[in-house]
């Protein structure tokens, strides 16, 4: 069971309190009624499935009930950071062969570098 840092509760909480809710940063078009088929396809159906960093929505459904966003490495299944809904997508690039961070650097201000845990 993962520990997930809830940016609203300000602490790590057990994964079972959360629900994953799909890809993040897909804004609903303001002119929904007027978009083309292609725009609707992009909005509703097409999703990335990257190897590496993915941005996804989570909800602390059995906690503060807030939706928030997380950057997760799909290779290591590590959640790299979490941030409040509405904040812009952070710029995260994983250095090659770097062990993923085990502690959310964006919130706790503490990062664990490879070798620290040894």
């Amino acid at each position: 069971m993962l520990l997930i840092h809830c940016p609203y509760c300000g602490e790590e909480r057990p994964e079972v309190e959360f629900r994953q809710s799909g890809e993040a940063h897909i804004a609903r078009p303001q002119n929904m009624a007027d978009i083309t088929d292609e725009e609707f396809e992009a909005f509703f159906f097409l999703r990335d499935n990257p190897k590496g960093v993915t941005f996804e929505r989570w909800r602390h459904v059995h906690g503060c009930a807030r939706f928030f966003n997380a950057a997760r490495d799909t290779v290591t299944d590590k959640i790299l950071m979490t941030y409040k809904a509405g904040l812009p997508k952070p710029d995260i690039t994983l250095p090659e062969k770097t062990l993923a961070l085990t502690v959310d650097p964006g919130v706790s201000g503490r990062s664990l570098l490879p070798g620290d845990a040894k």
Partner: peptide
């Protein structure tokens, strides 16, 4: 409830 909360929190806050 979840769907309503989702729209309210993330699309129309």
């Amino acid at each position: 409830m979840t769907m309503m909360e989702d729209y309210l929190q993330t699309e129309w806050p």
